[in-house]
């Protein structure tokens, strides 16, 4: 009985979940050709989807809140710019090196995963800030000091647009794979109760390290691609804390721990954010802060989490 009542919405949801994203990606792919005026908007939308989805691997699945998440993005951007401008490495390889260094950085930070809860968030935040100071103080010949590095010679909005698109698709695909895999179950167990997970034979240290590396890889790559797109980087914007904040809010709003949540969160909130930013630049931060408070109070599971909590039959479809 229960089944019959719930089968229609869940079947509809299944169709949506399968075809919706593919259709959207296709539309987005046409933007640089058909509607270049909104191409920057779509680029950043894809950027935020990538950031929020990757962030979901560490915060949504394992419950670790890296408040210095921007560090990976910043390192990706800087390594890409330095490799290309100082060493003459082709841009795709430069971006990949950014990813490699981001992963190396995550290994360097890995011991901090022993710390849990708010302490991890604070330590991670401090690491990111230390890194920013370090980068700002590296020899100017390398990093360009506070002025940063210009990449205008390889400015290519279309190529970088499609690279970002590929990266976004890869990120969402990876999250989907991880979430449905045994690693995904292990990570969720660790999030719920690390002690119980251990007692059941889950290798907590190894599983969360895998999540941490994946969560570091994508923002590092995204940093490189964005550097290519804007063709300029500087320490202030590459290590801007607002990037962490927005990533968190987007992921939370859509629903942590679900694959579609951060995507939905980024799509809906980025539009709002863009609007507020354009109309009330001064109030933007205030509104963002308020939004975080409201989210934690009223929508702790995000949109997707709340919907699947009410409609158990959708759990199998929307993940």
């Amino acid at each position: 009985m229960r089944d019959r009542k719930e089968s229609t919405p869940s079947r509809m949801a299944a169709v949506w979940v399968r075809c919706g994203p593919a259709a959207l990606v296709l539309c987005a792919a046409l933007v640089p050709l058909a509607a270049p005026s909104i191409s920057s908007y779509i680029f950043y939308l894809m950027f935020w989807i990538t950031m929020a989805s990757a962030f979901n691997i560490i915060f949504g699945l394992t419950g670790y809140l890296p408040f210095g998440y921007v560090a990976f993005y910043g390192v990706g951007a800087y390594v890409t710019a330095v490799m290309w401008s100082r060493l003459g490495v082709p841009i795709p390889l430069s971006i990949l090196s950014g990813g490699v260094l981001g992963v190396a950085l995550s290994l360097l930070f890995a011991p901090t995963l022993r710390i849990r809860g708010i302490y991890f968030a604070i330590v991670n935040f401090s690491c990111a800030m230390a890194l920013r100071i370090l980068v700002a103080n590296l020899p100017e010949a390398w990093t360009g000091g506070s002025l940063g590095i210009s990449l205008s010679a390889i400015y290519n909005p279309n190529a970088s647009f499609y690279t970002m698109m590929a990266l976004m698709v890869l990120t969402i695909w990876t999250v989907g794979r991880v979430s449905g895999s045994r690693l995904g179950i292990a990570l969720r167990c660790i999030r719920e109760d690390p002690e119980a997970a251990q007692v059941l034979g889950v290798d907590v240290v190894r599983s969360r390290l895998k999540a941490w590396i994946l969560a570091a890889l994508f923002p590092s790559l995204a940093g490189g691609v964005e550097a290519w797109y804007t063709a300029i980087i500087d320490p202030d914007s590459s290590f801007n804390l607002l990037i962490t904040t927005k990533t968190i809010v987007y992921a939370m709003f859509g629903g942590l721990g679900t694959v579609m949540g951060p995507v939905i969160g980024a799509v809906s909130l980025y539009a709002l954010d863009d609007l507020i930013w354009g109309k009330f630049p001064m109030l933007n931060l205030l509104i963002l802060g308020l939004l975080i408070v409201l989210l934690v109070l009223f929508l702790p599971r995000g949109i997707v989490g709340t919907v699947t909590r009410r409609h158990a039959s959708l759990r199998a479809v929307i993940r």
Partner: peptide, 14 residues
């Protein structure tokens, strides 16, 4: 120590 926010089946697979 049941994992609260995952399914019973996933609890058993852990």
């Amino acid at each position: 120590k049941i994992f609260k926010r995952i399914s019973v089946m996933e609890n058993l697979l852990a």
